[in-house]
Amino acid sequence: MKQKVGERDSFKKGLTTLMIKWVVFLIGLLVLATGGAFMIKSAYGSATWDVLHIGLSLKSGWSIGLWVQIVGLLMIGIACLIDRKKPQVGSFINIILIGFFLDGMLRLPIYPSHMLWWESLLFLFGGICILGFGAGMYVATGLGAGPRDGMTLVLAKKTGLSIRLVRTLLEGTALLLGWLLGGPVAAGTFLSVFLIGPVMQASIGFWSKQMARLDEKEESLVPVTEPVLKVNDL
């Protein structure tokens, strides 16, 4: 009877832990999209991939968020074909929600119609920090990598090139295509290449510790099925 109660408590704890991780994952996506929107509105340069998304939006008339979803889904599909593995459900949720969140944040009436230079800088650097922090949040949960992360790992594995080189080539290709399509490339775009990484790394470190604590609490409630030996029994 005690064992069944313990198993039931362990199941509830595991479910609670999973729910908390999903909440952190979803909030991370919203925070990331908010940072991306701030950078776009700053007019001092968008994140590398958003240059491509904006360029495609300008040429097609479709929203930036929709192109985030289209490009992301294509990358997930290509990575799966190359690696011959099914993607995580979280990867689809990741790219679909980021597209919706980004469009929603861009439509909010919270941005000054005519920004002063210091306001633009505030939105730019604030956007970089917010984007990096949100990326660290969702990555730390392990519920679904973004399409660029998945593509980077697959190509590095198949080509034998370093992850850093593959990621640089992908970022450079997206930036070039976006610029050719009319996407905004400015100083902030290049700053984001160097600044988002450190912020994201710090965020991953913080949130990974929080996720590890959750897992430790869950493991502490796993029922003991084997009899515990006492000193007198040895």
Rank of each mutant, 00 (worst) to 15 (best):
A186W: 02
P184A: 10
T225W: 06
L131H: 12
V224L: 13
A156H: 05
D9Q: 15
D9C: 11
W207D: 04
F206H: 11
L106C: 12
K12G: 01
P109W: 01
H53Y: 05
K13W: 03
T16L: 15
F11M: 15
F206R: 13
R167H: 11
T16N: 10
K12T: 08
L121G: 14
D215F: 01
M200F: 05
V23D: 03
G61Q: 02
L180V: 03
L155R: 02
W117I: 10
L214W: 08
K4A: 11
P223M: 07
P198A: 05
P223R: 11
G183T: 02
F123L: 15
W62N: 09
M211V: 12
W207V: 07
G188R: 04
D9W: 13
Q201W: 08
V231W: 13
L195G: 11
G205N: 09
L58R: 11
T48E: 09
L58F: 05
L181E: 09
G6I: 08
L73P: 04
K59L: 07
M19D: 00
L122G: 15
E171H: 04
V31D: 09
H53N: 11
W118H: 10
G132D: 08
T16D: 05
A135P: 05
G136D: 06
K2F: 10
S57R: 00
A140L: 06
G104C: 07
V89D: 01
G104Y: 00
S162L: 06
I76K: 05
F125D: 10
A33K: 04
G45S: 06
T48V: 15
W62K: 09
L97M: 08
V231P: 03
K158I: 00
L26W: 07
L143P: 06
E7I: 04
L181R: 07
G77N: 04
G45R: 07
G197H: 11
K21P: 03
V228I: 14
L58P: 02
L26M: 15
G6P: 10
E226T: 12
L229I: 13
L108Q: 09
L131F: 13
S57Y: 00
E219C: 03
M1G: 15
I78W: 12
M19T: 07
P198S: 10
L30E: 04
Q69H: 05
A202W: 12
P87Y: 03
V224M: 12
L18V: 03
I204D: 06
V193D: 02
S57F: 00
K21W: 01
I110K: 01
L81Q: 11
G172V: 07
P109N: 00
C80Q: 07
I98W: 00
P223E: 06
E219L: 15
G61E: 00
Y138C: 03
L15D: 00
G104D: 00
V166R: 08
G197W: 03
E216H: 09
L175A: 02
A202T: 15
A202Y: 10
L106Y: 01
T189K: 08
L30G: 12
G28A: 04
P109A: 06
I82E: 06
F206G: 09
F125A: 11
G14D: 01
L32Y: 12
G172C: 12
